Amino acid sequence: MTAQDSPAPLIPVETIRKALLGYRVLAWVTGIWLIALCYEMVMKYGFGDDSLGWIAVVHGWVYFVYLLFTANLAVKVRWPIAKTVGVLLAGTIPLVGIVVEHIQTQKIKEQFGIDTEPESRAHDSA
């Protein structure tokens, strides 16, 4: 389904673009902090070094914000609940959240005809 085939979205495309950008940023930040959390777990349980315990706290808060941004996007693009839960859970597995972000971003851009850059910036560079 392309932008020409789909009915006009109920939400303005610019609003979807902003929600998508927030989701993308938080998916990457969550993914990076999840990798850091894995490192912290190896250090803690493998080497008895508990000095990096703060990473778990930071990751927990970052993941919470990721949940909010993902839910915001899901409502705006009208994802079914099962897909929303799947994308939310993707942020709990190292690197999977980043892969899912890439796939979902491509689908949303195609579905809503979203360019990489907002129109105002695209015209400024021309």
Rank of each mutant, 00 (worst) to 15 (best):
F64Q: 05
V58H: 02
V29H: 01
G53A: 11
V29Y: 00
T30I: 01
L88F: 02
E14R: 12
Y63K: 06
K109M: 14
W61D: 03
Q111K: 14
M1C: 09
A82M: 09
E14G: 04
T2H: 10
V75M: 10
G46T: 00
L73Y: 11
A126S: 13
Y39T: 02
A19Y: 06
L89S: 08
R17P: 08
Q111A: 14
M43Y: 01
A27N: 01
A36F: 01
G113P: 03
I11V: 15
L20P: 02
S125P: 02
G97H: 02
G46D: 01
D115E: 13
A74L: 08
F47G: 04
A90L: 09
A19E: 05
W33A: 02
A3P: 07
W33C: 03
I55E: 03
G86R: 10
A8M: 13
T70S: 08
G113S: 04
L34M: 07
V77N: 06
I11T: 13
P94V: 01
W61S: 04
K18M: 13
E101P: 00
G22E: 09
G113T: 06
M41Q: 05
I93W: 04
H59F: 10
A27W: 00
L20K: 05
P7M: 08
K18G: 07
S6Y: 10
W79I: 07
Y63P: 04
L89G: 05
V87P: 06
W79E: 11
P94G: 03
V29K: 00
V57H: 11
I103G: 02
R24I: 00
Q106H: 10
L10I: 14
L68G: 15
Y66G: 04
W28E: 00
M43C: 04
F64G: 09
D124W: 11
